[in-house]
């Protein structure tokens, strides 16, 4: 494994670790800022890939991720935090148990999906074929987002989980698709959808309990 591959693996792994950081937060603002860090890490991965591949498309994508996901979404979500903002937190969360459950969930999910679907895929960085192993990180991030949505009641946590899933899709796609034009479009649409949805949903209700919207 050369230096570029090492850096890409490390930044992708750190993006996965940032998912644990978000999962372990009680305070809404910390959670939103965790999402900011995750977006920065994904942008950094894209910039390293852009350097390795000498791709201007990837540079543009990196800038889009940085500005839209890193800055815009974080700013909009932080503005929506009611009250003093920094004081608002989700109470009675067992961080240790959540972390361990999250670990079990993502390990099982990632292992099954990777083994069944992605183990035969090859991925190359700067011409070096390194197998599809790097896809483990976006897969793990996806399951973390899913677990965050499932394990928390507040709307902010669930929106952050959704953004985490979107981040994992961006990370996933940059490792699979050569020219990520479709991702750029999806980034715009996702941001638009997220902003609109979060603005409405957060104002309407602060917490959402399982299945309550489906009761007659």
């Amino acid at each position: 494994m050369n230096a570029i591959e090492n850096i890409v693996f490390l930044s992708a792994a750190l993006a996965t670790v940032s998912g644990f950081y978000i999962q372990a937060q009680e305070y809404i603002r910390s959670m939103v800022r965790g999402q900011f860090i995750q977006s920065i890490l994904i942008a950094a991965t894209i910039f390293v890939l852009a350097y390795a591949e000498s791709s201007i498309d990837l540079v543009v994508l990196g800038l889009l991720v940085l500005v839209l996901r890193g800055y815009l979404i974080t700013e909009l979500l932080e503005r929506r935090i009611p009250g003093k903002g920094s004081d608002l937190r989700e109470k009675e969360i067992g961080i240790a148990s959540h972390l361990l459950l999250d670990l079990v969930f993502i390990m099982i999910g990632t292992f099954i999906i990777y083994s069944l679907v992605f183990s035969g895929i090859n991925f190359s960085i700067a011409g070096n074929i390194s197998g599809g192993t790097i896809l483990v990180f976006p897969l793990a991030l996806f399951f973390q987002g899913l677990f965050l949505i499932g394990s928390r009641n507040t709307t902010f946590s669930q929106i952050t989980g959704y953004i985490e899933e979107e981040n994992s899709l961006v990370l996933f796609a940059i490792f699979l698709i050569p020219v990520p034009l479709i991702i750029e479009a999806s980034v715009f649409l996702d941001v638009l959808a997220l902003v609109v949805i979060s603005s409405i949903v957060v104002l309407e209700k602060f917490t959402h309990n399982p299945l309550e919207e489906l009761r007659g």
Partner: peptide
């Protein structure tokens, strides 16, 4: 416990 859970993770 949270700290050790992070290390274990």
């Amino acid at each position: 416990l949270d700290y050790l859970a992070t290390a274990f993770t």
